[in-house]
Amino acid sequence: VFVDDHLLEKVLELNAKGEKRLIKTWSRRSTIVPEMVGHTIAVYNGKQHVPVYITENMVGHKLGEFAP
């Protein structure tokens, strides 16, 4: 499973602090992992960042699938 390192670091850091804030990313190719559930990730679609709230059903899919 591929997840960009910088994105995973941000998610794990927020989980350690117990925070839930918006994470901006250009990494549409990253796979959604269970650690991301409950976070809102702003995924770049080529024009703007689209906020995507991550749920359990999204695990295993790519971030780009949810930012048309």
Score class of each variant (00 low, 15 high):
Phe2Met: 05
Phe2Asn: 04
Phe2Val: 05
Val3Trp: 05
Val3Asn: 02
Asp4Asn: 08
Asp4Met: 02
Asp4Leu: 02
Asp5Pro: 15
His6Phe: 13
Leu7Glu: 00
Leu8Pro: 01
Leu8Val: 03
Leu8His: 03
Leu8Trp: 11
Glu9Arg: 14
Lys10His: 14
Val11Leu: 07
Val11Asn: 00
Val11Met: 02
Val11Gln: 00
Val11Ser: 00
Leu12Asn: 11
Glu13Thr: 09
Glu13Leu: 07
Leu14Thr: 02
Leu14Asn: 04
Leu14Ile: 03
Leu14Trp: 04
Asn15Asp: 03
Asn15Ile: 04
Ala16Tyr: 07
Ala16Gly: 07
Ala16Asn: 10
Lys17Leu: 12
Lys17Ala: 12
Lys17Phe: 06
Lys17Met: 08
Gly18Pro: 01
Glu19Tyr: 06
Glu19Gln: 11
Lys20Phe: 13
Lys20Cys: 06
Lys20Ser: 04
Lys20Asn: 04
Lys20Asp: 04
Arg21Trp: 09
Arg21Ser: 13
Leu22Ala: 06
Leu22Asp: 05
Leu22Arg: 04
Ile23Arg: 01
Ile23Asp: 01
Lys24Met: 13
Thr25Trp: 02
Thr25Asp: 01
Trp26Met: 09
Trp26His: 15
Ser27Ile: 07
Ser27Gln: 05
Ser27Arg: 05
Ser27Asn: 04
Arg28Trp: 06
Arg28Cys: 06
Arg28Val: 06
Arg29Trp: 12
Ser30Asp: 01
Ser30Thr: 06
Ser30Pro: 03
Ser30Val: 03
Thr31Met: 11
Thr31Cys: 12
Thr31Lys: 05
Ile32Thr: 06
Val33Ala: 05
Pro34Arg: 13
Pro34Cys: 11
Pro34Met: 15
Glu35Ala: 15
Glu35Trp: 02
Glu35Gln: 14
Glu35Val: 15
Glu35Ser: 10
Glu35His: 08
Met36Leu: 05
Met36Lys: 00
Met36Phe: 15
Met36Trp: 01
Met36Tyr: 09
Val37Met: 14
Val37Thr: 13
Val37Trp: 08
Gly38Ser: 12
His39Cys: 02
His39Lys: 01
Thr40Cys: 11
Thr40Tyr: 06
Thr40Asn: 10
Thr40Gly: 07
Ile41Phe: 07
Ala42Pro: 01
Ala42Tyr: 03
Ala42Val: 03
Val43Ala: 03
Val43Tyr: 02
Val43His: 01
Tyr44Cys: 07
Tyr44Lys: 04
Tyr44Met: 06
Tyr44Thr: 05
Tyr44Arg: 03
Tyr44Trp: 14
Asn45Lys: 06
Gly46His: 13
Gly46Asp: 07
Gln48Trp: 13
Gln48Asn: 13
Gln48Arg: 12
His49Cys: 05
His49Phe: 13
His49Gln: 03
His49Leu: 06
Val50His: 12
Val50Arg: 10
Val50Ser: 08
Val50Ala: 09
Val50Gly: 04
Val50Phe: 10
Pro51Thr: 08
Val52Ser: 06
Val52Glu: 02
Val52Gln: 05
Val52Leu: 11
Tyr53Glu: 10
Tyr53Ile: 13
Tyr53Ser: 11
Tyr53Val: 12
Tyr53Cys: 10
Thr55Gln: 14
Thr55Glu: 14
Thr55Arg: 12
Thr55Pro: 02
Thr55Asn: 08
Glu56Ser: 14
Glu56Val: 13
Glu56Asp: 13
Glu56Met: 12
Glu56Trp: 10
Glu56Pro: 12
Asn57Thr: 11
Asn57Ala: 14
Asn57Asp: 14
Asn57Pro: 13
Met58Ser: 09
Met58Pro: 00
Met58Thr: 08
Val59Pro: 11
Val59Lys: 13
Gly60Phe: 15
Gly60Asp: 09
His61Cys: 11
His61Tyr: 11
His61Glu: 10
His61Ala: 13
His61Val: 09
Lys62Arg: 11
Lys62Val: 12
Lys62Asp: 06
Leu63Gly: 01
Leu63Cys: 03
Leu63Asp: 00
Gly64Leu: 09
Gly64Ile: 07
Gly64Phe: 09
Gly64Trp: 10
Gly64Thr: 05
Glu65Cys: 10
Phe66Pro: 02
Phe66Gln: 07
Phe66Val: 07
Ala67Ile: 06
Ala67Glu: 04
Ala67Gln: 05
Pro68Lys: 12
